[in-house]
Design a protein around this nucleic acid. Structure first.
Lengths: 169, 169
DNA sequence: ATAGATATGATATATTATATCATATATTAT
DNA sequence: ATAATATATGATATAATATATCATATCTAT
């Protein structure tokens, strides 16, 4: 049973739909946990949702549409910490950058494919990978808690080799 | 065909053997590429070899046994960049730290198991993981170049659950 | 309305990493 | 051996990323 959404968002997809859906999910996630979806958190998430590409904290700061005073870095980091804590964004460790989550649900075995040219990131489920990690961990007597799986390379758009057209039911 | 060395070095293993062997391999690797194994590079590698645990660049700097003036950060980073470039050390992205390599040979599918308590790191081959990544990449039309696979959790010593004694031939 | 909890504002500073240019050292060709 | 070339280091400065702290504001439940 393959996932129907393509790993890398199509060049011409309706991105507003992504944004709206994500903001709605965020709203719901906060409500669900009785957490506040404040203006700051909203603003930071919205900035991260502008593209399927990770932004550094200071990049977010620069793009922040501040009404009064320019916000301090801490303000951004606080929002990022919060959003990450409830699974709405991911930190891409290999880039010190933050990415809006595009896969509601569990993120235990999530794999990130990061294009080194256009910086787009695909967020994949990696079930097989998870199995492999669990096997390795078991063999080592290791108890896994969190994991970072980030693959850097070239996305279909940037290699000129588009992804095979699978699952055309 | 399982690897005979345990994933996490045993509490009582003869560590001097590790160090000596690694320094010898480093020497050979440099010779092989006509690169210079200078005092700085030697010193940085040696510090990283003091334990199977990653050190931050500034941690290395602090422990650096400087004869004259305290070296500048750049000096450490230069050595680290060099050592990493020829595969003698690894960068642990999730910790901004550097680890002496304990597995001569290819590092394409290397998996790091990082203990969040004692900070020991096991460096594993992850063949199955590599296959999983390649599959995911192919399905996505992604061309993988480099990858970061880091699992954080508790090592056998720290869970109290020692690794099963496998391959006792 | 008040008390308690949580988020923000403001300031300062810690941590990690790189840029630059002059000097020194090693390697190669002569 | 010596000069020419390449490579590494020394020294200084600064960039980029992230956290600590404490006062104030805002929300939530009673």
């Amino acid at each position: 049973m393959a996932d129907s959404t393509p790993p890398f968002p199509h060049r011409l997809h309706d991105h507003q739909v992504c944004i709206d859906a994500s903001m709605d999910r965020a709203e719901a996630a906060c409500l669900d946990r009785s957490e506040r979806f404040t203006e700051n958190r909203r603003a930071v998430l919205k900035l991260l949702l502008t593209g399927h590409r990770p932004l550094g904290a200071y990049e977010i700061l620069e793009r922040f549409d501040w009404k009064k005073r320019r916000p301090a870095p801490a303000q951004i980091y606080r929002a990022l910490a919060f959003l990450e804590s409830i699974g709405l964004i991911h930190r891409i460790a290999s880039r010190n950058a933050y990415l809006a989550c595009s896969r509601p649900g569990s993120h235990l075995g999530t794999v990130f494919l990061v294009c080194e040219q256009c910086e787009m990131v695909a967020e994949l489920e990696g079930t097989q990978m998870q199995t492999a990690i669990n096997t390795l961990a078991e063999q080592s007597g290791f108890e896994p808690h969190t994991q970072v799986i980030e693959v850097t390379g070239l996305c279909p758009e940037c290699t000129g080799t588009p992804a095979p057209d699978r699952a055309e039911t």
